[in-house]
Write a protein that binds this DNA or RNA. Sequence first.
RNA 1: GCCGAAGUGGUGAAAUGGCAGACACACGGGACUUAAAAUCCCGAGAAGGAAACUUCGUGCGGGUUCGAGUCCCGCCUUCGGCACCA
Length: 806
Amino acid sequence: MPNAPYDYTAIEKKWQEVWEREKTFAASDDFSKPKFYTLIEFPYPSGAGLHVGHPRSNTAMDIIGRKKRLQGYNVLFPIGWDAFGLPTENYAIKNHIHPAVVTRENIDHFRQQLKMLGFAFDWDREVDTTDPAYYKWTQWIFLKLLEKGLAYKTEMPINWCTGCKVGLANEEVVGGVCERCGSEVVRKVKSQWMLRITEYAQKLLDGLDDVDFIEKVKSQQRNWIGRSEGAELDFEVKGLDEKLRVYTTRPDTLYGATYMVVSPEHPIIEKYKDRIENIDQVRAYQREAAKKSDFERTELNKEKTGVRLMGITAINPVNGREIPVWVSDYVLVSYGTGAIMAVPAHDERDWEFAKKFGLPIVEVVSGGDVEKEPYTDIADGVLVNSGILDGLNVAKAKQRMIDYLVEKGIGERKVNFKLRDWVFSRQRYWGEPIPVVWCEHCGCVPLSEDQLPLSLPDTDHYMPTDNGESPLAAMEDWVNTTCPKCGGPAKRETDTMPQWAGSSWYFLRYIDPHNDSCIGDAEKLKYWLPVDWYNGGMEHTTLHLLYSRFWHKFLYEIGVVPTKEPYQKRTSHGMILGANGEKMSKSRGNVINPDKVVEEIGADSFRLYEMFMGAFDQAIPWSTNGARGCKRFLDRVWRLMDMVTDDQGYSDGLMAEMHMTIKKVTEDYDSMKFNTAIAAMMSLVNSFYAAGSVTRGELETLLVLLNPVAPHITEEMWQRLGHAQSIAVSAAWPEYDEEKTKKDEVEIAVQICGKVRARLMTPATLTPGEAEAFFMARPEVKRLIEGKTVKKFVFIPGRLVNIVAV
RNA sequence: GCCGAAGUGGUGAAAUGGCAGACACACGGGACUUAAAAUCCCGAGAAGGAAACUUCGUGCGGGUUCGAGUCCCGCCUUCGGCACCA
């Protein structure tokens, strides 16, 4: 009697309820079992709900986790909400609903959508960054950073987003505009909380050698950290007791330094304003530079500009030559010393500037024509016009010059980083309050641990302000408090933390989410850390990933966590594009709604398609027909129940294919080649159909292999095959036997001079020694080489022979 | 400009230096059906040929090799990231 049709809606609902009721996927703190911690980036619960990109990453890690569970691991696959942040606050402002209410609604919606897709999350460990019980520990970490001198407040020019009315971290400014809203970013001097991530620059770089991150992520992090080696040295200023310090990666070219440049913000201008003969002109230039946004300074204004500081002359320390000092905005105040020695012969920027302003170009490395273009090759090139360095290659000359600078007390070796300290404060309402107060007597006083969490006060006035003050500043009842140290009157800090704060340590909280006395129990942290496998978007490589590594390294050093690195392995998924090949967006009208897809083909088919559509790390356009094809495959799997026999084993005819498929799927899941794993299972099912029947043993193996991708249908079929318990607890990952993956006979392609001319069945055991005699005796081969001389015979077992005959 | 990835049928794509196009989608044909849908079976890179088969074919040009989509050299294009970082 045929089975009922595949009613995915009922089946999926049924099993989601079973998993929830029986807590099938709860991780246990049984330290005797091997553990595996799989992690996805916890979603920001936006008002738009889940998009089809979320399930791509989630399904991938769900597959890895479910497979590991079937292989006997204690798997932790948690979920939570990165719920602070601007979009929620903006939505709240627009619709006059409190951000906390909006957040709760959005989370409820997301939770329901994720459950609909059947991810094997441990829902008992859900965390929410906006929950005071959670952000108590975010604030606690901040206090520790403050205590160790890694958090500080300073006046500095920050990236001010004119749209969001908030300061941004460097990492949040993309192409001169706000990463989030696209508005212009201008520089604004404000007092800001900063985190000294630069202190960890070298450690963040070194740590990359110990982890298994995809190369793209490593190189982007290295690039962002931007380590360079060189020297810092002083140039004396003629007639003044003053030295101008520069950083250079090319100390070897010092003899070719024909002028210097300081950034418009360099203090020497202010200090010698009375001496600079053209100070008005310089001031005008400074004002122009200050007005320009970073975008204009970099993108639109490649053309060099500058003004000479008349009356200021520097002396090249190695040859005593007097050289002019200029001010130009191509020198950045924020990097190195804010001043450079210019070597126009061997640096593109300096060359361009020298050409424009008619400054001398002196060749000190031979190999190019420095009048025509700068010669920047450091590989082969020999020093000339360089006194003590003449005749040396660049590498040796660098070394020699640094030794000389040290010997003469002019300078020393120096390593620089592009990485800047992290601008940590935001002038917005919907974030973690920074737990310090400002006391008239004691200055900045941190709250004590027992005063945490410092809750966000409830208010209806959470609009951002034009003057750049946090909305919290207007809440006098909350702001006015007493100093924890002296008990006198004090005011609370009113800036809040950026969204990156809560996400910098959330993976730790999953390990012990309800612990009220510390971040997490030490034994549990020791057992579960590091995260074994973390998948997420490339857009977080220089933001979240770098920030959280920084916090983790800090927590390691103060003894809170047991590992130097938070994540052992990091992979990344490709974006899902609209059917037209463009990025999905509301404005393009090409957004696919997961709810609709699940309604039409079911969660299993949806998951299957997301994994089958193409290589996991590449961007792929959505195809509704492709998704339907996956539904068709599950229909075929379902109907296998109409042709199943009672045989527990594998049939002889399919023995090799069964073992080969187990091997292929096992290996492909581990290397995230989900598309080919699924293709192998499709082929297997095609073989079952071709055979006209499937044994119970074969079907059960298929169900276990397919379970990580399509958990509901496989559970249902497993149960219908007579199993009382969930496949997740009653099945084991199938084993394969390498020997049995081989067939008795194999088809060998016969090439003559590299072209396939015939295909012959041969015993699989044919050895290279026997091959030549075997093939030469075959009539098909004889005919092909008739009248020719065999020059060479190549045999590749199991694949082909190539007979070179002329 | 620098760093990284990628260019393969009508489409999404497979392929430890070893039979290019697995597996799907779309398409065409057949079976079943009064009919349609669903399902099952078959076909299919291009050109030529009635067919056996032949030639060409993985962005372009060279090279290494018995053999190259894959390795090397030189280009072109696309997409990501970084970019006046001295």
